[in-house]
């Protein structure tokens, strides 16, 4: 890609790109500030905790709560970023050319529409990757400094869909899908609505599929009563069950109640006699394996969406 190609790509979608650039910069800066503030608040909390040996009083520190809330907003922004980027940058690529009647010139100047598509899409792909990755890194820091968790070293599956490597790959899938929909319905707003619907359906499907896959490989994880909840390293939990202490056999809650009926718990105990509650899920240290698996699936979907876009554009009347 030459500098000229970049300049033209920018000029053709200047308004959208400027908006996204500004929004991404704001989000990243906000994330960094939240991460920094949360770290400071947490450091002072930890000092208080160590001094007292209890979190009574320290836990009431309002800044922990504030940074946790702000972090939630930042993560929501990060979660939405790939979808917004993909849809708003992808839909107009073909739809606007046809709606603005410029496709006639563009598609005859270029000998092949695939070449035209590559010239148009490549800069957008790079922009989408860079912005989504930047937002993903910002969000990663917010998660790692979550004041109510110990995720500094390994957040595991915490905030799985709003941070890290999945954001850029999601942005690419949505971008290519939106281009294909924009080519099929060459009016921008209807195409945007349809693309949004298709995107939701696709990602709900992927999430359900991934959850089913993970569930099939889930295993019992013992509760680890840390200060900030039962799990320290961010496992992905799908269910809770009972493990029979004597046999080590895991039984689902439903099966347990079916077999034993409602069991009165002894005073001060959380588990029925002879059983220990365990979580069923994937341990946090397997995050990268699953992130890569999901990335591979999304990569295949991106290739399919890109192929679909190219096919539709090849056959499209301008």
């Amino acid at each position: 890609m030459t500098l000229r190609a970049w300049r033209l790509a920018f000029k053709m979608q200047r308004l959208e790109l400027l908006l996204f650039l500004s929004a991404a910069i704001l989000l990243v800066v906000a994330s960094l500030l939240i991460a920094w503030g949360a770290s400071e608040a947490r450091a002072s909390f930890d000092a208080c905790y160590q001094e007292q040996g209890t979190d009574i009083g320290c836990a009431a520190s309002p800044s922990l709560n504030d940074f946790s809330t702000l972090g939630g907003f930042a993560r929501l922004g990060a979660f939405l970023t790939p979808f917004a980027l993909g849809l708003f940058l992808g839909v107009p690529v073909v739809a606007r050319e046809i709606e603005g009647r410029t496709a006639g010139i563009a598609w005859t100047l270029s000998r092949s529409r695939s070449r035209w598509l590559i010239q148009r899409v490549l800069p957008l792909v790079v922009v989408a990757i860079v912005l989504a990755a930047a937002v993903g890194i910002g969000s990663e820091l917010v998660t790692r400094t979550n004041p109510y968790a110990d995720y500094a070293a390994n957040p595991g599956f915490a905030d799985y869909t709003s941070r890290g490597v999945l954001l850029p790959i999601r942005a690419i899938v949505v971008l290519l899908l939106a281009i294909a929909v924009g080519a099929m319905v060459p009016r921008q707003l209807p195409a945007l609505l349809l693309a949004a619907g298709v995107t939701v359906a696709l990602f709900v499907g992927v999430t359900i599929g991934m959850d089913a896959w993970m569930t099939s490989e889930a295993r019992p994880i013992p509760f680890d009563e840390s200060r900030f909840g039962p799990f320290g390293d961010g496992p992905r939990i799908f269910d809770v069950a009972y493990r029979e202490d004597a046999t080590g056999k895991v039984i689902s809650m439903n099966d347990f109640y079916n077999q034993h009926g409602d069991v009165a718990l002894p005073d001060g105990e959380q588990d029925p006699p002879g059983f220990t509650q365990v979580a069923i899920g994937i341990p946090g240290d397997q995050y990268w394996i699953w992130a890569m698996r999901e990335s591979a699936i999304l990569g295949v979907l991106a290739v399919a969406a890109g192929g679909l876009a190219a096919l539709v554009i090849r056959r499209r009347r301008p």
Binding site: R7, L8, M12
Partner: peptide, 20 residues
Amino acid sequence: PSLYDGLSIEDHLDLAVLLR
């Protein structure tokens, strides 16, 4: 003929070079 609103004439020529 509809041209790209956001581009100058020079840009159109540059675009043509990129495409062909």
